[in-house]
Design a protein around this nucleic acid. Structure first.
Length: 330
DNA sequence: AAAATCAGCAACCGCAGTGAA
DNA sequence: TTTCACTGCGGTTGCTGATTT
């Protein structure tokens, strides 16, 4: 027994929207809003459409400031970086790209960006063979650097008192103290994440952390801007996820070493996001249909050890979801 | 020129989370 | 505490135009 359908499928129109339907829906919402109830909206508007269909049409096509067309390099970079770190959480990724919808980004990734990355990777493989000794040497160095970083940035790990205004930090690794996330349960309630892969920082702390970085800025909910932190994640095992295509050829990238990743010291391995481990273990990034699945081996060269990362590194990457959620509430 | 294949993308489906009753 | 309607999201489908054979 499944759940009841949201509408009478026999009596609703499906398929592409006509210009008339678009203008009806747009005019109604602009005048009256959604009323917080999509299910009853079609009836009010006079459309023979499912409420979910109306919602989708509005969010993906009709609402103001929707951006269609070519993605910029900067947008490519943001999508790549976030996908590599948080996976296919398209709504979160969309929150970083004003005017873009999650559906747009999902389609763009599946049809073009992924291929672009794979092509890029193939070219690199042809040009620059890997060596095991290089991997091991750099991993050790990275781990040492990482230890030093945390030793000198204790405020990041030990700041347990949070001012009221908070934004979400999502991390590739769980924070040193998982209670950080628990302590913000009221906020975490608003976001659908497990407590092990998120932690909240106040805006003050965020700006303090980001003050040394060199990456593009990002708009916060209150209108302030904050720079993206670092040029990649900085997980405790020393693996750094690159910030995208532009830096792609600048680093002596090495592939992710499965054994090394799984056998890092206990405290480190415990902090590696389990989804990453799953990807590594399965050697596959789950995408959509089977023929579109992407091998982790193929994409792993995006996981880099860029030497320059230590000059400006901060261990976390920021992203902000509330702007997008705000749009949804409009 | 026609058929087959591919690529892009809009739209749908169904699950999970949420909150009100 | 439970139930259920509703929303939001990610995965998937299928249509359409472009390209290749």
């Amino acid at each position: 027994m499944g759940r009841a359908p949201c509408c009478d499928k026999a009596n609703v129109k499906r398929g592409p929207w006509s210009p008339e339907e678009d203008s009806k829906l747009k005019a109604y919402i602009e005048q009256h809003g959604t009323g917080g109830n999509w299910i009853t909206l079609p009836q009010k508007v006079g459309l023979k459409r499912c409420g979910k269909s109306c919602r989708l049409r509005w969010l993906n096509y009709l609402r103001p400031n929707i951006k269609h067309g070519e993605f910029t390099d900067e947008e490519d970079n943001i999508i790549c970086t976030l996908y590599m770190s948080i996976g296919s959480r398209w709504s979160i990724i969309a929150a970083q790209l004003p005017g873009r919808t999650d559906n747009d980004i999902k389609n763009y990734w599946n049809t073009r960006l992924k291929k672009k990355l794979l092509l890029c990777n193939k070219q690199r493989k042809d040009q620059r063979p890997r060596t095991g000794s290089y991997i091991n040497h750099n991993k050790l160095e990275m781990m040492k650097e990482h230890e030093n970083f945390f030793a000198t940035h204790q405020t990041i790990n030990n700041a347990y008192s949070w001012p009221s205004q908070q934004i979400l930090f999502s991390t590739l690794i769980a924070p040193q103290n998982h209670d950080l996330a628990e302590s913000s349960s009221a906020n975490s309630h608003n976001f659908q994440y497990s407590s092990t892969d998120q932690v909240y920082f106040s805006q003050d702390q965020l700006c303090q952390i980001s003050s040394t970085n060199q990456l593009p800025s990002m708009n916060l909910v209150n209108g302030n801007t904050c720079n993206m932190v670092s040029n990649g994640y900085y997980p405790s095992n020393g693996v750094v996820i690159n910030n995208g295509l532009q830096e792609y050829n600048n680093y002596n990238s090495v592939g992710l070493d499965h054994d090394a990743l799984n056998s890092t010291s206990t405290t480190h391995s415990q902090q590696v996001d389990k989804s990453v481990l799953e990807m590594v273990n399965s050697s596959t990034i789950s995408t959509t249909s089977q023929d579109q699945s992407t091998s982790w081996e193929e994409l792993s060269p995006l996981v880099n050890y860029p030497p320059s990362v230590f000059e400006t590194v901060s261990p976390y990457y920021v992203f902000e979801e509330q702007r997008y959620m705000g749009l949804l509430k409009q």
